[in-house]
Amino acid sequence: MHGERPRTSITAWRPSVPGIAEVFHAHFTDHAYPAHTHDTWDLMILDDGAVDFALDRRRHDATGTANVLLLPPGVPHDGRTVTAAGFRKRVLYLDDSVLPRRLTGGAVDAPILDDAMLRRRIHQLHTALGHPGDEFEAESRLSFVRERLHVHLDALRPRTPGREANQLAVRLRELLDSRIIAGLSLHEAAAALHAHPTHLIRCFRQTYGLPPHTYLTGKRIDRARHLLLEGRRPADVATAVGFHDQAHLNRHFTRHVGITPGRYGRGGGYPP
């Protein structure tokens, strides 16, 4: 029928973030997955509706937006809609570098996790993954998602920053300051400073009051303001200060300064 909304909507991509094999967003109204397995972990949140699924021949129901579903690799599962409205889901397919396969048993026993903090962190990760150029932020957010999943699966508790926090934070800040344009990954920073990624982020936040990716973005915005007032084009400024492209600069610049780079640069440094 003309004008009828499509019954299925799917968006999928492979991000440039280590550990994430695929991002998958979908709206299904009448789809039923046959029994199958994945080589990856299936980390899913629902944005609407309900889904019925079997994992290792045990059926489960997931309804609403409060829970997180975690399906382990190599274990048969299916899935189907429950109501005529179907369901909307966002999925991250994670490889063994995020969760080792030895944790499979815990996920089979309890694939539905009632954890509001984990759900919020996964949502924030999806948001970062949707913006090219925000890979450092996405990698940081994935590190906290991984840590939270480990809390559920093998009861590992986060380490609280100790007396070394300030020194480690200063070293990370120096590293970020030396790589403002080129940038770096969280993995590179953690390896260079011999620290666990989430511990490194906590030390930095405790010392400076913001996470490393936010600090790096702020430094880039400061450089962009200087170049824009010199009359440089926003597209040129974006790459000159380390942003992915002009759209990436526009989004962060407007959030920080309250005006687009183009309008800011047209001021020319003179009052009206």
Rank of each mutant, 00 (worst) to 15 (best):
M1L: 10
E4G: 03
P6V: 13
T8W: 08
W13D: 02
S16Y: 12
P18V: 03
P18L: 02
G19K: 02
G19P: 05
A21K: 15
F24D: 02
A26T: 14
T29C: 09
P34C: 07
L43F: 01
L43R: 05
D47K: 08
G49F: 00
V51W: 04
H60L: 07
D61R: 14
A62V: 11
A66S: 14
A66Q: 11
V68S: 03
L70Y: 02
V75D: 10
D78N: 09
G79R: 07
V82T: 06
A84L: 10
G86Q: 04
D96C: 07
V98L: 07
R102G: 08
V108M: 08
D109Y: 09
I112W: 02
D114A: 14
H123K: 12
Q124G: 12
L129N: 01
D134M: 06
E137D: 12
S140A: 06
S143G: 09
F144N: 00
E147Y: 01
A155C: 09
L156T: 15
R159I: 05
T160A: 15
R163D: 12
E164R: 13
R171V: 08
L172T: 03
R173C: 04
L175K: 09
A182D: 13
G183M: 02
L186Y: 04
H187E: 14
E188M: 10
E188S: 10
A189R: 04
A192E: 15
P197L: 15
T198A: 00
I201A: 02
F204T: 05
K219M: 09
R220I: 02
D222C: 08
R225Y: 10
G231S: 14
R233Y: 11
F243Q: 03
H244T: 07
D245S: 00
L249F: 03
L249W: 03
F253H: 03
V257Q: 10
P261K: 01
